[in-house]
């Protein structure tokens, strides 16, 4: 080796090129894209014990045999507000279907804000902001809001989605749960 610096420069250059390629490949991909897949898919759904806004209890066991869509949300979250019309439309259309249940669980909010939102926006599906809601949010490994899961009638997590859903998304989530 006549000039060791030349070899060192070559080595450093090669590392830089590899590094630049990795960065270039990563540019433009959403850093949160991977988060779209939940680790719970295909596993038994974690149980929860929630309080409805009227004070009655709701546990996952009560819902056995039904397809459950769980929607984690907050009143202050803008994407959740964006999602609201789709939820309202879908809920109105499937209200009568006893094999389908929609449960809205607050993640990080004040009780008064949840009650006010449920009243003004007619969110008949949502539950109270209490300890059970926080525990459910952890058990489902939620990483933000809105985040939604489908639980099949036999109690498996079969669908998950991060971010606002459209009515088509909701239909797809329900269909997955029903094994269609």
């Amino acid at each position: 080796m006549k000039h060791p610096f030349r070899w060192i420069a070559l080595g450093v250059g090669a590392i830089v090129v590899v590094f630049a390629v990795i960065l270039a490949v990563n540019v433009g991909t959403d850093p949160r894209a991977e988060l779209n897949t939940s680790r719970l898919l295909g596993k038994p759904a974690p149980s929860f014990t929630l309080t409805r806004l009227d004070g009655t209890r709701l546990t996952l066991a009560d819902l056995a045999g039904k397809t459950v869509i769980v929607n984690f949300w907050n009143s202050w979250c803008v994407p959740c507000r964006d999602e609201l019309p789709a939820l309202q439309t879908w809920y109105a259309a499937h209200r009568a279907d006893t094999s389908l249940v929609l449960v809205g669980i607050p993640r990080d909010d004040s009780s008064s804000a949840i009650r006010a939102a449920a009243r003004t926006d007619g969110m008949g599906w949502t539950v109270a902001n209490d300890h059970g809601a926080e525990a459910a949010s952890l058990a489902y490994g939620t990483r933000g809001q809105p985040e939604s899961f489908t639980i099949s009638p036999n109690g498996q997590v079969v669908g998950s989605i991060i971010g606002p859903m459209t009515t088509a998304d909701l239909d797809r989530m329900a269909a997955v749960g029903q094994g269609l």
């Binding site: 000039h3 420069a9 250059g13 830089v16 630049a20």
Partner: peptide
């Protein structure tokens, strides 16, 4: 990223050239 690459390439290239 392109600018970073130009900077690094210039620096490393010049050092190799002047080795």
């Amino acid at each position: 990223l392109s600018f970073l690459f130009i900077v690094m390439a210039t620096g490393i290239g010049l050092i190799a050239w002047r080795a």
